[in-house]
Measured scan of single mutants.
Amino acid sequence: MADQLTEEQIAEFKEAFSLFDKDGDGTITTKELGTVMRSLGQNPTEAELQDMINEVDADGNGTIDFPEFLTMMARKMKDTDSEEEIREAFRVFDKDGNGYISAAELRHVMTNLGEKLTDEEVDEMIREADIDGDGQVNYEEFVQMMTAK
């Protein structure tokens, strides 16, 4: 299944994987998964984290390695993001709930994920998604960005 991913997608997933893999040992533990999910405003229980890991832990060693992570991402993409997942993601970014993602809100979430971005990089990300040019990202623009192939 992971063989249907483009090189660009694999590179993006590698970057995402390293955000989860806090200690850089090449595997994601339940603790690391929990840290990232909490930084995104989720509050999973230990059991939920274990279930999430077990779902993709092909070799049964209790952690997720990069090939397992790729399989999980490929699977998720095949079920292409349901509207509800996209709306949920939008809410994570839209901290003040005004229906727009500002540069400050984007920077806040990315920083929580451990991504240190310059102001230019954040502005560039907003510009790429900002179709109507108002300097922020509304829900429609967010959907376009998330579903762009």
Rank of each mutant, 00 (worst) to 15 (best):
M1R: 08
M1Y: 07
M1Q: 08
D3V: 06
D3A: 05
Q4K: 11
Q4C: 07
Q4E: 02
Q4P: 14
Q4A: 04
L5H: 01
L5D: 05
T6D: 04
E7P: 02
E7Q: 11
E8S: 09
Q9N: 00
Q9S: 08
Q9L: 13
A11R: 01
A11K: 13
A11T: 13
A11W: 07
A11M: 03
A11G: 10
E12K: 11
E12A: 15
E12M: 02
F13H: 01
F13N: 00
F13Y: 14
K14C: 01
K14D: 13
K14E: 12
A16D: 04
A16H: 02
A16K: 02
F17R: 00
F17G: 02
S18L: 14
S18T: 10
F20I: 11
F20W: 14
K22V: 09
D23W: 07
D23P: 03
D23S: 00
G24I: 15
G24Y: 07
G24Q: 06
D25W: 07
D25Y: 01
D25A: 14
G26Y: 04
G26S: 10
G26L: 06
G26C: 11
T27V: 07
T27R: 11
T27P: 10
T27Y: 02
T27S: 11
T27Q: 03
T27C: 02
I28Y: 11
T29Q: 08
T29I: 12
T30L: 07
T30E: 06
K31I: 12
K31Y: 10
K31V: 02
E32Q: 02
L33W: 00
L33F: 14
L33T: 13
G34Y: 05
G34V: 04
G34L: 11
G34K: 03
G34I: 02
T35V: 02
V36R: 01
V36G: 09
R38F: 02
R38K: 11
R38A: 04
S39E: 03
S39N: 06
L40G: 03
L40V: 14
L40W: 03
L40A: 15
G41R: 12
G41I: 03
Q42K: 05
N43L: 07
P44D: 08
P44K: 06
T45Q: 15
T45I: 09
T45R: 11
T45H: 06
E46P: 15
E46Y: 01
E46Q: 13
E46W: 09
A47P: 07
E48Q: 04
E48N: 07
E48H: 03
Q50M: 01
Q50H: 11
D51E: 10
D51S: 10
D51H: 02
M52L: 11
I53Y: 13
I53H: 15
I53M: 15
E55H: 14
V56Y: 01
V56E: 07
V56G: 13
D57N: 13
D57I: 02
A58V: 14
A58Y: 08
A58Q: 01
A58K: 01
D59Y: 08
D59H: 15
D59K: 08
D59M: 09
G62F: 12
G62E: 14
G62L: 08
T63M: 03
T63E: 03
I64W: 05
I64A: 09
D65M: 10
F66N: 04
P67N: 02
E68I: 02
E68Q: 04
E68C: 10
F69H: 03
F69Y: 08
L70H: 01
L70V: 12
L70P: 00
T71K: 13
T71I: 13
T71N: 09
T71S: 06
T71M: 15
M72W: 11
M72V: 14
M72T: 14
M73Q: 06
M73I: 11
M73V: 13
M73C: 08
M73G: 15
A74M: 06
A74T: 11
R75I: 13
R75G: 13
K76L: 03
K76D: 08
K76S: 08
K76T: 08
M77C: 08
M77P: 08
K78N: 06
K78H: 02
K78R: 13
D79H: 09
D79E: 11
D79R: 11
T80L: 13
T80A: 14
D81G: 13
D81I: 06
D81K: 03
S82Q: 09
E83S: 00
E83A: 08
E83F: 02
E84T: 01
E85R: 13
E85Y: 10
E85V: 09
E85D: 07
E85N: 10
I86G: 14
R87L: 09
R87H: 11
E88L: 02
A89T: 07
A89L: 03
A89F: 15
F90A: 05
F90S: 02
F90N: 15
R91D: 05
R91N: 06
R91L: 11
V92H: 07
V92G: 09
V92T: 14
V92C: 08
F93M: 04
F93H: 11
D94W: 02
D94Q: 03
D94M: 02
K95M: 03
G97K: 15
G97F: 03
G97Q: 01
N98F: 11
N98K: 14
N98E: 15
N98R: 10
N98C: 07
G99I: 00
Y100P: 00
Y100G: 15
Y100N: 13
Y100M: 06
I101Y: 05
S102G: 11
A104C: 04
A104H: 06
L106W: 12
L106H: 09
R107P: 02
R107Q: 05
R107E: 06
R107S: 03
V109M: 11
V109F: 13
V109T: 10
V109G: 05
M110F: 00
T111Y: 01
T111G: 05
T111K: 05
N112G: 15
N112C: 03
L113V: 05
K116E: 11
K116Y: 04
L117R: 05
T118E: 11
T118Y: 13
D119T: 15
D119G: 12
E120V: 12
E120M: 03
E121F: 04
V122S: 15
V122F: 02
V122N: 00
V122T: 15
V122Q: 00
V122K: 09
D123C: 03
D123Y: 11
M125W: 00
M125G: 07
I126A: 05
I126Q: 01
R127M: 10
E128I: 11
E128C: 03
A129S: 12
A129E: 03
A129V: 12
D132Y: 08
G133P: 01
G133W: 00
D134C: 09
G135M: 03
G135T: 03
Q136N: 08
Q136R: 13
V137T: 09
V137H: 06
V137W: 13
N138V: 13
Y139I: 02
Y139D: 13
Y139S: 04
E140W: 07
E141T: 15
E141S: 06
F142Q: 05
V143F: 02
Q144R: 13
Q144P: 10
Q144C: 05
M145I: 07
M146W: 08
T147A: 12
T147D: 10
T147K: 08
T147M: 11
T147L: 11
A148T: 14
A148F: 15
K149I: 09
